[in-house]
Design a protein around this nucleic acid. Sequence first.
DNA 1: GTGAAAGCGCTAACAT
DNA 2: ATGTTAGCGCTTTCAC
Lengths: 340, 340
Amino acid sequence: MEKVTITVLAEKLNTTPATISRALNNHPAISDSMKKKVHALAEKMNYKRNKIASSLRSGKTYTIGVLIPSANISFFGSVVHGIEIVANANGYNILLYQTNESRKFEGKGVEALLSAHVDGILISVSKETKDYTHLSNAKKLGVPIVFFDRAKEGLGISSVVIDDYKGAFMATEHLIKQGYKRIAHISGPLHMKVFNDRMEGYKAAMQQYKMKFSDDWLFEGDVSIESGKAAIGHFLSLKEKPDAVFAVEDYSALGALKELKNRKVAVPERFGVFGFANELFAEHLTPSLSSVDQQTILMGKEAMQLLLSLMANKKQPAACTNITLDPLLIFRESSQRKIK
Amino acid sequence: MEKVTITVLAEKLNTTPATISRALNNHPAISDSMKKKVHALAEKMNYKRNKIASSLRSGKTYTIGVLIPSANISFFGSVVHGIEIVANANGYNILLYQTNESRKFEGKGVEALLSAHVDGILISVSKETKDYTHLSNAKKLGVPIVFFDRAKEGLGISSVVIDDYKGAFMATEHLIKQGYKRIAHISGPLHMKVFNDRMEGYKAAMQQYKMKFSDDWLFEGDVSIESGKAAIGHFLSLKEKPDAVFAVEDYSALGALKELKNRKVAVPERFGVFGFANELFAEHLTPSLSSVDQQTILMGKEAMQLLLSLMANKKQPAACTNITLDPLLIFRESSQRKIK
DNA sequence: GTGAAAGCGCTAACAT
DNA sequence: ATGTTAGCGCTTTCAC
């Protein structure tokens, strides 16, 4: 069984590989009749373009790299799904890397992607990442990069995020309107823009509605169940105890819910809880968890779309584009008092 | 800035590209002194092997393809993580494809992976898949394949699964020992070996313990929350109502729990529930869901390891190996009666 | 509109 | 132990 290459197609049609290549790539200078013949024969002989050879010659791999902190967080799985939809529709493959929230693995991942000659990189940075040389290096090499969700400003790298400030503001506002009086916040690592923005949104809402506020009601966690639990432990030890909490994301909120249940504090009656991310489990908890949906599929699609456009005009200095999606609040039991 | 290739390294060292290549690949016939010089220079000049060129020549891409039904199921995310650990440790990259539980996308995915010249394929088939020509074609082309979790027998394709029969047997046995008398089963699509095996395990336990059994207690679902709900609806409409259910996986079990809560049937007091997969949400439900853990990370690692060995002896007829992992039962609230 | 020819960067069979 | 040579399959510049 002979391998079918453009050379054998050329022989069969008494022409040259160059013509075949052009015909297959719909080059304008090739006559329609020739194109038809070539496509027909290719079809008949089940010709498949050798992407490796094509990549070597053209420098394009039609592969993009995706770096995520963890596939155990349904949020990221869902974004990747969005990315895939657009990628596949445009003939791109996805090389996936999980960084395990570690800067070291993230660096290795970028290395691996570069050495695989990906045409572009989509990344949501790890909690640990404070040094961005791996990304600026990649950028220097001319590989377009787009952040999604967890972005970093000031690097001239494009990004797609939701409006974290707005989402946080609206969630806090909702708790206020539900009649909670002393609303606390569990934050994430504040060196990350996402988490910082959410805290600012929370603070802004508290201020705008002239709510009582205490620095004791700010607990810096690390986006984990444990820090949610610890936060509640801290809050309930205070003289002036909060009666609601806006958590920076759902795992912290989940920890909070668990600890509240442990301590037999009724949610939402005596304590309101609002999360962020709308993780898969949020709607299945008891009480179900109110949360800010981040439009994961859309985020993935937009990120990929943006990357496509950056890859298209590689010549230009590639203006840095930042897309902000609107958050979508999902009101469930944990934040809605039965009493009005 | 000149691109650094083996040719420029060769010029600097007054030798030939071939020697550089061999030195870099640790060819035994190259002297240690030369290897040292080459490695030192490569390091100094920040040389990176061009994998594309290497692949074109050697026919190896050091990339494997992974096909999963959905990244929204944490089970698969976790298996992929296991795969990645072993893959990265061996210098392999992962091309990811989600099939959305669709045979059509699965076929396209295999096509895409083949045209990317992956060295091997790991796949967990979609619910829909009944026709396996896409896989037998790939196999015919000499691409090693390994099933994980959702496998198909009789194709001569290797697999790594957990002992579904045993897990189901043990889960059912546990319910029996907890004193439930009329244990029902929500199954999945029975054309899939996984789900069929689980049903058989359930039946075997029922028989061995001489439990009362009725065909009405067998509900064929489609591994979804909805079918779990529907199953409970069906069970509770019976004259002889079951008092426990072993669900084929956690989403069905979740649906069951929800519907039971809806109908105010106390779990585990009046009704026991056992799931399968130990999805992320299982431990966070109220009551928490007992489930069979499938050793996801281990499964991923084993699958990749098996694929590596298949790829290594591509010459041999590649004996078909089937690895079965032991299930791990996780006993939580939903199946443990407080009363003895 | 098509052909000729070069070459992407690397590897491997064959030579010495 | 190292050099020579050829070529993986494709794209693309330059001819005509």
